[in-house]
């Protein structure tokens, strides 16, 4: 297990290298010129050329990649073209709101989602199942940005219960976490329901029942534990998706997080920031995957780790 873990962690290094190259090529190959964005529209051709030269954009692409890689190895992510601040400093500043948001969204949606899923599966075909699945389906059917705007209108503007956005108090996080978590809650509810149903139909559950164990115990100890495998996969998959979701949510709720930084930087062709962020997201995603894979083994003894 320990060796497996070390092997997997070391295995991510070449992966990250490949990703860093892909990201670099992607950002430099898509149309766009950060120099024009930096200099503004009124800049003359000569001014643009001066700026291009001083930024090192006239060097061959491979040289630019190697100097980027060199900086990266030395822990230097570069300076943002847009704000002239160090990229690492900007990212740290933006990480906090996104982490908080993701945490709250994951927390409530996991609890509520699994609860709905299990309750629905146990009460299959009854009203409670029906209600649960309706909530779940609504959760994935509603466009997040739309829900966010509507909730701002109702709870902030009309009722004045919570701020429209920002990150000043804990109350600022209520609406965005609800909006962001909706999708996961729904997906979790559906998945935990279907995998619970699977487990409930399995032989070992029937056996447990036949042995006369209490129903609640059967559900929790046998069925639920086994359905966790798929559920954990889904949570893992969805946390990566949360960052994408947070792009829209952070815009709607005026939260200066990583998602918005990414979209804004991409629009500005702020290469250094986009590269750093994409690399960070990739790393984060790989890490989560690794954890999911390891949990697999812990939760389902039928899958053995090599």
């Amino acid at each position: 297990m320990g060796r497996y873990f070390v092997k997997r962690v070391l295995g991510t290094i070449p992966l990250l290298l490949v990703i860093s190259f892909l990201i670099f090529m992607f950002i430099h190959l898509i149309p766009g010129d950060p120099v024009r964005n930096m200099a503004g529209r009124e800049a003359t051709t000569e001014e643009l050329e001066n700026l291009r030269e001083s930024m090192g954009f006239n060097k061959p692409l491979y040289q630019q990649y190697f100097s980027y890689l060199n900086d990266l190895v030395h822990g230097d992510l570069g300076i943002s073209y847009k704000t002239k601040l160090p990229v690492s400093e900007m990212m740290i500043g933006r990480l906090k709101p996104t982490l908080k948001l993701t945490f709250f969204a994951t927390l409530w949606s996991t609890i509520v989602g699994i609860a709905i899923g299990v309750l629905s599966a146990v009460n299959r075909g009854k009203l409670i199942d029906y209600l649960g699945m309706l909530i779940a389906i609504s959760g994935i059917s509603i466009p997040g940005f739309w829900l966010g705007l509507v909730m701002i209108q109702i709870f902030s503007v009309k009722l004045g219960w919570v701020p429209t956005g920002g990150l000043d108090t804990w109350r600022s996080y209520i609406l965005p976490s609800i909006t962001l978590g909706c999708g996961i809650m729904a997906i979790l509810a559906r998945f935990s329901r279907s995998s619970m149903l699977d487990s409930l139909g399995e032989d070992y559950v029937r056996t447990a029942r036949a042995k006369g164990q209490r129903e609640r115990l059967v559900i929790l100890r046998h069925a639920f534990r086994n359905s966790l495998v798929q559920v954990v996969t889904v949570i893992g998959l969805q946390i990566g998706g949360l960052l994408a979701g947070s792009v829209l949510i952070e815009t709607v709720f005026t939260i200066p997080g990583l998602g918005r930084l990414l979209v804004d930087s991409l629009a500005f062709r702020d290469y250094k920031v986009v590269q750093a962020l994409l690399l960070f997201f990739s790393f984060e995603y790989i890490l989560i995957n690794l954890i999911v894979d390891l949990l697999y083994g812990v939760l389902n003894p039928r899958i053995r780790l090599k």
């Binding site: 992966l15 490949v18 990703i19 892909l22 992607f26 190959l29 898509i30 149309p31 998959l237 990566g240 998706g241 960052l243 994408a244 792009v247 829209l248 998602g259 990414l262 979209v263 991409l266 994409l278 997201f281 990739s282 984060e284 995603y285 790989i286 995957n289």
Partner: peptide
Amino acid sequence: RGSDILFAMPDILLAIAIVAI
């Protein structure tokens, strides 16, 4: 690993990137 790379990018951003290219 291939799907890790695809997955590592936020969905919407990946779509934007593809449409941009």
